[in-house]
Write a protein that binds this DNA or RNA. Structure first.
Lengths: 243, 243
DNA sequence: CGGACCCTTGAAGGGGATCAATCGACGTGG
DNA sequence: CCACGTCGATTGATCCCCTTCAAGGGTCCG
């Protein structure tokens, strides 16, 4: 498959993402070191490893997770197009969690060593990077509040709502239905619930007509109703920069 | 009280923090807009509000929290000297959680509007800011793993260990004993546990001789042992930049 | 056709929430 | 100087949400 030029990058079209001006695009063109395509199940970043690369997701989905010493797994979040991967390793030296592909993925590859020239010459992009990190921090804070305060049903409703809104913002999926190619086990590991309980709760939400996730697709008839179950304000997804 | 010059900033002395070179110090001197002292209980940043200011904690402790619409409270993390506050509001426009002082605090005040000149003229400091955001992201990821995967006893052991290590790194407290001026309720809200259960678990750890937190001070006879209870690797605290 | 993988469903047990009451420390006003 | 209210730590009793154990079913593939 032919590599994509930043100037015609499909991500520019997402209404969720802020497009770049001409100058930044040509800088990014140089910054970009290549492209990578991976199959489902591939480890893109490895916990504890030193990566020479950073990535922007062009296409496909995955998940970021972390495993305790005794094997318990926590899914930190779900990875979607537009996401920037490896910033932690980029600045801190070592990856603190793994990223794994769940569908086939296409990634834009950057070299870690070039990060420094970006900071020296591109204040706007540096700012964008900080923005991205701060936004991630925000989201993780919400997740903490969910794991700490919400009960099982609320957690699942909250997660489905977030996933639904992000997919919609990216223009993926149709009207009230978006693809969601994860396993129930992944959602369970993301929310700190057992698989069994996750399954039963999903069934309940389904029968209540609030959210239907089956066969790799999520249908949400009424996002407001789902937000109510999740005990959350329906804060709209904010536009954000990307690289 | 007289304002402190960045050139003699006491934070420079912390072994945990990376000191600045001369040039950066004089930039920071200008960047610094003033100092602020607050009493315990004061809200420094308010959820949902637009702050014109950013802060670096010079002295004292506090906590960052978030409340759900129905009143449940989640403590996101504990605030200590060297911490940079308000980055989310700084780049994203609005604060997504509150910060409250628990002890008297002294803060270094920066103007949000000046953030741009920092990014334009100080690539090293811009990098440092991104570093800080990425480090925070890392820590929140660990917290998520804790809330999602660890049981009550493990959670409390993990939190006490983290707090202990950070305080030691800052050079606060003596040998195996550091000040910890929070309430049991705060820890409970940080870990998603009830106050009652938190209390009982603290008592258990105390009687087992693993960790003793009482009268505002935490004593840890053997950090390794505590780490074992917490099911965590005793990863040493990493040096980090600050502003 | 057997195996791998995932979803589903029933039953039983436990970790932690909730309810409730006591106690100590502290400050304040009479 | 003491009565009293407040706030935080403590402890006992009860209950339930969620975990764990167990087993069955659907689909895909070699």
């Amino acid at each position: 498959m032919k590599a994509i030029s930043c100037k015609t990058c499909p991500l520019q079209e997402c209404e969720l993402l802020l497009p770049h001006d001409h100058e930044r695009k040509s800088f990014l063109e140089d910054f970009k070191a290549g492209e990578m395509t991976v199959e489902p199940g591939t480890q893109i970043l490895l916990e504890g490893a030193m990566t020479p690369n950073l990535y922007t997701v062009l296409d496909g989905m995955g998940l970021r997770d972390k495993t305790l010493r005794d094997g318990r797994r926590q899914v930190i979040n779900f990875v979607m197009p537009g996401d920037f991967l490896g910033l932690q390793a980029g600045v801190m030296g070592e990856m603190t969690n793994s990223v794994e592909a769940v569908t086939p993925m296409r990634l834009c590859v950057f070299r870690r060593d070039d990060l420094w020239t970006l900071f020296r010459n591109q204040p706007e992009l540096s700012y964008a990077l900080t923005w991205i990190a701060a936004a991630e921090e925000h989201f993780l804070g919400e997740t903490i509040a969910t794991l700490g305060q919400r009960d099982g049903k609320e957690r699942i409703a909250w997660a489905l709502l977030k996933l639904f809104q992000r997919m919609q913002g990216l223009g993926l999926g149709e009207n009230r239905r978006v693809p969601l190619p994860f396993r129930q086990q992944d959602l369970a590991d993301a929310l700190g619930l057992s698989l069994v309980h996750t399954n039963k709760t999903l069934a309940r939400l389904r029968s209540e007509g609030v959210a239907n996730w089956s066969n790799g697709h999520l249908t949400v008839p009424d996002a407001e109703a789902l937000a109510t179950v999740a005990v959350t304000d329906p804060e709209p997804v904010q536009k954000r920069p990307f690289l």
